[in-house]
Design a protein around this nucleic acid. Structure first.
Lengths: 410, 410
DNA sequence: GTGATTTGTTTGGATAAACCACATATTACA
DNA sequence: TGTAATATGTGGTTTATCCAAACAAATCAC
């Protein structure tokens, strides 16, 4: 009878746990719930975590000591019993969110409470270079610092980049629209701001935000596809956490093959989702210029509602693009069996004009099981999406190990 | 400034940890390493887990008490110092692995040591019904029981089914080649054998086996595609664990879209990988009958090595099928950024005849980052694959919580 | 007010892992 | 053959964690 070969030791074995890990984990759980829900009473924390009342008391006291949360007066309930103090994440624990785009750099300060404290959009004449981004961010942060109280603590920087970003060190491998290639932007920003920097693809930041605060709340397995002016990006979130893959590049659904007779794509292949499903042809048909996506959607819905019915070319284009999108989604559903598929940007519009057409096509063409279990939806975080996603990237180390942040000076 | 909406409470918050959890986790880690490596010294466990010597001593003692491992004499090393006892998983802790196929049911007993203790292939005239499978398994297990010592403990049953299996309750939603639809096979087997039963898709079982014992050892993110007589199945393993998706259906790469002009597939769509890349046309061209895959590969390699070169039709077919496979793999690499892609069965043959052609095509057509980081390989577990994979499914509860198994009677 | 209910607080207890000192078993080398 | 060096098991002690229980406090219902 065969003996199965023994596994080698190349995969590092799971480490053992000690008591420190217990504490660290429990602090992270409590801070995580507090951060996710905004306001929680100690009693709610007790129920959610399954920990003892006294343990929660001690954990919360330590988080207060660390300057990460405040204990506030109990909020009025209609229940009998002693009121339970409310835990709120401190707003003066702040992440810096940065999003360089083709014609602007957006910088925002986001509190641990989830509030966007301030936000600047710095327009640029051309696509900014990495050096320009660093300079713009440094100036913007210096300016915003003054508006905030002296107690403000910056815990890190989160960067959402429209391109491929290596997760391990935050190097931008390729960002065609910015013209970047192998740019160590995270390192550069970290040197300038003296803060830890986490960089990720913009759609990855988006899926994290949607997963925790947006239409993906509560979904355990979430796939996100976003159609922007520059192409189609995407991301995968499992249990609220970004799925990175081996090196951080997972989620590039824009280059899913959907058409044998398709156009060549800048990626080198042809027939990619991104080349077949684009905003531009629709804008041209509707006589629109390079507009915001809200405007496109309004115009499109109005067009479809015309008494004489939609133009044949418009209807055909929608039909064709929905078909290609359905093919890509079918692949994704079969491969990943997600609970929820979220569509943003232009793809959200495509979904919105005929939700049934798209979801029906996918459910019918995907395999039973995965196909009939999946839900579809639109991304709901608009403007705030990338800013919040980037901030979540920056907060991640704190949320995973609250005790690792230096306690406040005072 | 915007306030991000608070997350609702629909996603159950992560639970807190207590000391029991620490112990449970550490027991699982120690047993897991022991199971994966086959033979480990206590000293090696100490280094791998990062735990204290005395803690490892206590954990191992508890596992011995539970009857899951034995402590054996130290094996000779060339190192100075006191020899460290060796921990070996007990062979009389046994899982029952079951694999129903179109023309046979395979039943095997697999020890926690990883050894296949016995194995029966029960041929059937036609595809077996669920009732027949239950009867065959019951008879086989009764027969094999006699061969084993009285100390043998059965911890569970693992079932690898060629079809879609709902992970939560082991119901086979659809197994076209068996003619099963909504069959509660896990429940039926559990009632008969009075043991916990875990069922999964056969490729899912395969990827787990390859990930832990086969060509996927050490890979953190692994994608597996297998070409069998009945189609193409697949699975995803992350850190040695099966990625199930929302309900256990993840990994159906056989229905990836690869050809707009493709044939209709039994799944309802058309142009699926499974319809475009098949064994049958190649067998026909080579004048082979319905042979084993080893035979196909030998014949094919011999044909390609002919002095006059391969037949043009054969070369064209290989080129064509490799091209479609490359398209599917490109999609998968872009979407999941796996570390390793493993090909089994007919797809392994297709890869083996020209590894460079396939891996080169994928690396070039996938996006930089994901494309140039991925490795390709052949699945290396042949006959044992499904049996080992099914057994791993059955052992999973024990490996996750060793203390949950009843201590041996003796 | 009085009682029921819920929750914070305090204290003591159980438990798990770390730490330390010492015993033990092997190799290296004179 | 004997001694030193090295690595590892063993047992007692310490430390940190969470839990359980008793008590105190704050609210609601009547």
């Amino acid at each position: 009878m065969a003996q199965i070969p023994a596994a080698d030791s190349s995969r590092p074995a799971r480490r053992g746990n000690n008591l420190d890990d217990v504490r660290r984990n429990n602090l992270a759980v409590v801070l995580g719930i507090s951060h996710a829900r905004g306001r929680v009473s100690r009693a709610e924390l007790t129920r959610a975590t399954g920990l003892n009342r006294s343990t929660i008391g001690a954990l919360v006291a330590e988080l207060v000591e660390l300057g990460l949360v405040d204990e506030a007066e109990p909020s009025a309930t209609k229940l009998a019993g002693r009121p339970s103090p409310v835990i709120v994440p401190r707003e003066d624990v702040v992440a810096i969110a940065v999003n360089p785009e083709i014609d602007a750099v957006t910088i925002a300060l986001v509190g641990l409470s989830g509030r966007v404290l301030s936000r600047i959009r710095h327009d640029t004449a051309a696509a900014p270079s990495a050096e320009e981004v660093v300079a713009i961010v440094a100036a913007a942060v210096a300016g915003m610092r003054g508006e905030l109280g002296a107690s403000t603590r910056f815990v890190g920087v989160g960067l959402a980049v429209p391109g491929l970003v290596r997760a391990s060190d935050g190097v931008v491998i390729l960002a065609p629209h910015l013209g970047w290639r192998d740019v160590p932007i995270a390192e550069m920003l970290a040197a300038e701001l003296q803060l830890p920097v986490t960089a990720a693809n913009d759609a990855s930041a988006g899926v994290v935000a949607e997963s925790q605060y947006g239409a993906g709340r509560g979904a355990r397995g979430l796939v996100y596809l976003n159609g922007g002016a520059s192409g189609i990006g995407g991301g995968i979130a499992l249990d609220g956490q970004l799925f990175e893959g081996a090196a951080g590049y997972a989620g590039e659904f824009g280059h899913t093959f959907v058409n044998s007779a398709g156009s060549p794509c800048h990626c080198g292949a042809s027939g990619c989702l991104e080349t077949e499903v684009r905003r531009a042809p629709l804008l041209a048909l509707l006589g629109l210029d390079n507009t915001r996506s809200e405007e496109l959607e309004e115009t499109l819905l109005a067009h479809l509602a015309r008494p004489e019915g939609p133009d044949a070319a418009v209807a055909a284009l929608l039909e064709r693009q929905s078909g290609f999108l359905a093919i890509a989604l079918r692949n994704i559903v079969n491969a990943l069996n997600p609970e929820l598929v979220l569509l943003g940007g232009f793809l959200g519009t495509l979904y919105a004009v005929a939700p049934e057409r798209l979801s029906g096509a996918v459910s019918r063409s995907a395999l039973p099981g995965a196909g009939d279990g999946v839900r579809f939806g639109r991304a709901e975080l608009g403007n705030e999406l990338l800013v919040v996603g980037a901030a979540l990237l920056a907060f991640k180390p704190v949320l995973e190990d609250p005790a690792s942040v230096a306690a406040p000076a005072g």
